[in-house]
Design a binder for these strands. Structure first.
Lengths: 343, 343
DNA sequence: GTTAGCACTCTCCGTCGATGAGTGCTAACA
DNA sequence: TGTTAGCACTCATCGACGGAGAGTGCTAAC
């Protein structure tokens, strides 16, 4: 059996109506609502075919039909009119993105909030993933008696500062000497690559500043090693899920929110298969808790480099055309903002 | 009418049973479950009195009784056996708090998680509130051509770094000079207190480094001014609420979670009336969304100074004795950890 | 003051039937 | 051959009904 134009029209009608109403739709209603020029009986026959093709299904005998995952997929790939974002939303995004925001972390939080507000769905934003970072440069600054500020510049350009204890009696020259030795020996190495011999050298060159060195190394280990933390995913509008009729069942809400709490799965879900826009529908999801959901995600870039992704999670029954337009525009805008602002 | 010993015993039985089962309890069941040495009829009479006194109420005619807010209050104030935290939980808290955690922010997140896990309720942790911060000291460090790292030490001891643009051609001496002028003029001032005359002086002393100064001031403004952000409240175990039978109604969940999303109200709720432990029961809550909830909170200190609070939110029907023991022990432990570690 | 007994009240839960939306099938029609 | 009208059938939803069970308040006896 083949899809012909009439079948496509009917499938489109079913998907669109179900997206709008969340109710199963029957042949009679289609004939009434959509002007297809044929009677309900004809539509009934076509619907039986569409069901055989796997594009629609019945929740139970003699209820209306609803789109299956395959039906949504066909709709997204072949039937949907690509939609241009409506001007109001476009303006909102542009206005919001011109606000000056300093930290990348804040940009992400802000994006997430905006996205969930525009879509009335849950938004996911994945920040840049850092990977193992390597040591670039170190400075010491005076702080309090017995303590100094250690400023670490990593080779990826990230700067961090931490306060560490030193022996009470170190002079500025001594500090500079320690920094000098570190900078000379360790530049370009991650903490995992630091070898015994290297430490040995550092120790022997700087026998007096044992405490300082130990603390500095401790700190370096913490900074360079567990950058896992930073790669946090940001969620927005989780509550919007509660407004979807498909989640009026509390147990569903529970399993869904459970997933929201553990970042690991979310990261995996959002990590893009490929650059650009991705649509994952229902059962296509690897995560079984999301089998009733669809995810529309897209990657964003900084200076041409893909560094993260933003996405929207909603019930499979979502307004694909609109959400795709929003996510698409959003990532473009984000890319632009970040590229302009970042150094 | 007065409370006598028997009434107290009965009220205690009602509260304890209801805390455990979440079911209204009748006179017969009390007589069977608790060995009070009187018949159900007697208990019935006493229960009528307790209802007149406002300590218990009936959900509807001829259901059992449940404690009213006043009943819980009386229970907490007069009937409850103060409970020592059970050794396992105590050990968990002590073990967890010896883990080395660097940032205060992480300590808070960690505390929140632990607290919600131990109580199976929702935890709230309020970090130190910063107030307007004042400028302490500034350093510049070389970074890239045309950019330097500006390290700001605030007078409250917080250190931050930011990258700022400078004219391409500034020498180390010039940078030091700029820092020197800032340090001299601005120490102890918040950004709001910086007067025109002061800026004028800075500009006239350092006419050449206009760009650097402008950018540095911009950054200072951002750093010193909007510290509102930092005072974030941390929530843990919000999902636990879904397990409480009183929240099997989705609309209740919605209004509750709505509140969780807006920090402002939560801050107000958790901001302690007084030092030490606080129990707020049901309608005593200022927030109407929490009128079915109780909050047990306690303040913690650093070096003798009260800086924040941790709390637990649950349905009014909660195990007050146990939760109070946990919150109490937790804040003590937290105070100890922070006092030991902080400088 | 305490207790046993009893009539009464109210929720909860399962059953039942009416209703209505929707289907599949058949036969008639163009 | 494709389209349509008609019809019997299915199934979820909803309100009504009634029995079961838990609990109460009141009265009278101890």
């Amino acid at each position: 059996m083949q899809m012909d134009e009439r079948k496509r029209k009917i499938l489109r009608a079913i998907v669109q109506d179900y997206i709008a109403t969340a109710e199963p739709i029957g042949s009679r209603t289609i004939a009434r609502k959509f002007d297809l020029g044929v009677s309900s009986a004809t539509i009934r026959n076509e619907m039986a075919d569409l069901e055989d093709l796997g594009f629609i299904e019945q929740p139970y005998t003699s209820a209306g039909r609803i789109p299956s995952d395959a039906g949504y997929r066909y709709f997204v790939d072949c039937l949907m009119d690509p939609q241009v974002l409506n001007p109001e939303d476009m303006e909102i995004i542009e206005r919001e993105s011109t606000k000056r925001i300093n930290e990348l972390q804040e940009v992400i939080a802000h994006t997430s909030k905006l996205l969930s507000e525009l879509t009335n769905l849950t938004s996911l934003v994945l920040g840049p993933h850092k990977g193992k970072s390597t040591f670039g440069k170190m400075h010491f600054l005076p702080y309090q008696p017995g303590q100094v500020i250690m400023v670490i510049v990593k080779e990826n350009g990230v700067v961090e500062n931490h306060i560490i204890d030193v022996g009470e009696n170190l002079t500025a020259e001594e500090l500079q000497q320690v920094a000098g030795v570190f900078n000379q020996k360790m530049r370009g190495y991650s903490i995992g690559q630091v070898k015994r011999s290297m430490l040995h050298e550092i120790y022997s060159e700087l026998s007096r500043q044992r405490l300082l060195i130990d603390n500095a190394l401790d700190m370096l280990r913490a900074i360079l090693d567990d950058n896992e933390e930073e790669e946090r995913i940001h969620l927005g509008g989780t509550l919007n899920m509660l407004n979807q009729p498909e989640f009026k069942d509390l147990s569903k809400v529970k399993t869904l929110f459970k997933v929201f709490e553990e970042n690991e799965s979310l990261k995996k879900v959002l990590t893009p298969r490929q650059e650009g826009l991705n649509v994952t529908i229902g059962g296509e999801n690897t995560l079984k808790e999301f089998r009733d959901c669809s995810i529309i995600s897209a990657t964003y870039k900084v200076n041409g480099l893909m560094i993260g992704a933003v996405g929207v999670l909603g019930p499979t029954r979502m307004d694909y055309a609109k959400v795709i337009a929003i996510v698409d525009f959003m990532t473009r805008s984000l890319t632009e903002v970040l590229t302009k602002r970042r150094r």
